[in-house]
C-alpha cells in the first residue's frame, strides 16, 4: 500500500468550488478596510497595531493551535523580526520593506531551531524549552549591545520609516501606510495558514496533535512536520515583529520582547480561538484593547492582572475562544467546518 492511499482527503474540501464565497468575503474585507482607513489617525494607527499582533498570533496559532504545542517563546521570534528590521534600517540603510524578507528568513531559522527540541520533548517540557528562548532573547540583546543598543534599546529615525514613494502616502501618513501594509501582510499570512492547514502537511500536523502514535504509524514524520511547523510559525511571527518595528520605531528588550509578550500573544490566541483561522484577528484586537481600556485603572498597572484574569476566565468559560464559539454556532454561513479545523 502506498502512503498516498493511507491518508484520506481533507474532509473540508467543498464538493463544488464556488467563487461566490471568496468574492463576498473579499469585498466585505476590502470595504471594512477602506471604512477603517477613514477613521481618525490615532484609530487607524491603533487598528494597524491590532493587525500586526494578529499576524504574530497567527504564527503562534500554527504551533499552539494546529500543532497543539504551547510555546512561550514566540516573544523571541517576534523580537527577531523586530530587531532584524530595526538594525538593517539603521545600520545598513535598507528601506523598511526590503528588510522584511530578511526578518522573515531569520524568523524561519530561529523557529526551526526552536522546533528541534519539539521532536524530542512535548507538553510542559516543550513549554520550558520555548520559555528558555523567551528568556534568552533579551539577555542576548544586552550581551551584544553594540548591535542591539542593549538595555537602552534601539531607535529608528522616523525619516527612515517614511512610506515608499510608490505607495502614494507621504511621510506624515505613516499610520495609513502601516495600516494598509499590515492588512496586506495579514491577509497573505492567513491565506498561507489556511492553505497549509488544508494541505496534506496540515492534515498530518493536526493528526500529530490529536494522536501522535496513530499519526506516526500512518507514516507521518513527527520530526519533519514539527520542525517545519515551527519554522513557518517563526517566519509569520517574525513578519509581525518586523512590522512592529516599523510601526513603533523604538525597540527595547524589557518593554516589548520579554516572556510577558509571549503571554500576551497566548492570551490573544486563546481569546480569539485556538486553531481557528480568524481567531488571531480577534485576539489581536483583544490584546490591543485590554491595555488601552485598563490604562485608567490603577495607573495602568492593573493590566497584567487583567490579562491573567481574562485568560483564566476564557479557559474555563469560553474554551473555544470567540471565533471558535461563533463557528460552533454556525454563524459563518451554514457550511460546517471539518473536525480537524475546529477541535483542539
Amino acid at each position: 500500500m502506498t502512503r498516498e492511499s493511507t491518508l484520506p482527503k481533507p474532509a473540508s474540501l467543498p464538493a463544488k468550488r464556488s467563487l461566490m464565497r471568496p468574492a463576498v468575503i473579499g469585498i466585505v474585507a476590502v470595504a471594512l478596510l477602506v471604512a477603517g482607513g477613514q477613521l481618525p489617525d490615532f484609530r487607524v494607527s491603533q487598528i494597524a497595531s491590532m493587525l500586526i499582533f494578529a499576524i504574530a498570533i497567527s504564527g503562534l496559532n500554527l504551533v499552539a493551535g494546529y500543532g497543539g504545542m504551547l510555546s512561550l517563546g514566540h516573544s523571541a521570534l517576534f523580537g527577531v523580526g523586530g530587531y532584524t528590521t530595526a538594525i538593517l534600517i539603521s545600520e545598513m540603510r535598507l528601506t523598511p520593506l526590503s528588510t522584511m524578507p530578511i526578518a522573515i528568513a531569520l524568523g524561519v531559522l530561529v523557529g526551526a531551531l526552536m522546533g528541534l527540541p519539539a521532536t524530542r520533548v512535548k507538553g510542559i517540557y516543550l513549554a520550558l524549552v520555548t520559555l528558555a528562548f523567551a528568556v534568552a532573547f533579551p539577555e542576548f540583546l544586552k550581551r551584544f549591545e553594540e548591535l542591539t543598543g542593549g538595555a537602552g534599546g534601539l531607535v529608528v529615525r522616523s525619516v527612515d520609516l517614511a512610506p515608499p514613494a510608490w505607495s502614494g502616502f507621504d511621510r506624515f501618513e505613516r499610520s495609513q501606510w502601516m495600516y494598509w501594509l499590515s492588512a496586506v501582510v495579514l491577509v497573505l499570512c492567513l491565506f498561507l495558514v489556511r492553505n497549509l492547514i488544508r494541505s496534506r502537511r496540515g492534515l498530518s500536523i493536526t493528526a500529530l496533535r490529536d494522536n501522535e502514535i496513530a499519526a506516526t504509524v500512518c507514516g507521518v514524520s513527527a520530526a519533519r512536520d514539527r520542525i517545519s511547523l515551527f519554522a513557518i510559525s517563526g517566519g509569520i511571527t517574525a513578519a509581525g515583529g518586523s512590522l512592529y518595528a516599523m510601526y513603533i520605531g523604538a525597540l527595547s528588550p524589557e518593554l516589548s520582547f520579554t516572556v510577558f509578550t509571549s503571554i500576551q500573544l497566548i492570551t490573544g490566541l486563546i481569546i480569539g480561538g485556538v486553531a481557528t483561522l480568524l481567531g488571531p484577528l480577534a485576539g489581536g484586537v483583544a490584546i490591543v484593547i485590554i491595555p488601552a481600556v485598563t490604562l485608567d485603572l490603577a495607573n495602568g498597572q492593573a493590566y497584567g492582572l487583567v490579562f491573567g484574569v481574562v485568560l483564566i476566565v476564557v479557559v474555563f468559560l469560553l474554551p473555544d475562544g470567540i471565533v471558535g464559539r461563533l463557528q460552533k454556532m454556525r454563524v459563518f454561513t451554514g457550511r460546517s467546518q471539518s473536525a480537524a479545523h475546529t477541535s483542539t
Partner: peptide, 19 residues
C-alpha cells in the same frame, strides 16, 4: 480539560500574581 488549559492557568497566575 487537559494539559494545555492547565499550563494556561498557571501562566495566567504567573502574570496575575506578579501584577
Amino acid at each position: 480539560r487537559g494539559e494545555m488549559p492547565t499550563l494556561l492557568i498557571l501562566v495566567a497566575l504567573f502574570t496575575a500574581i506578579n501584577a
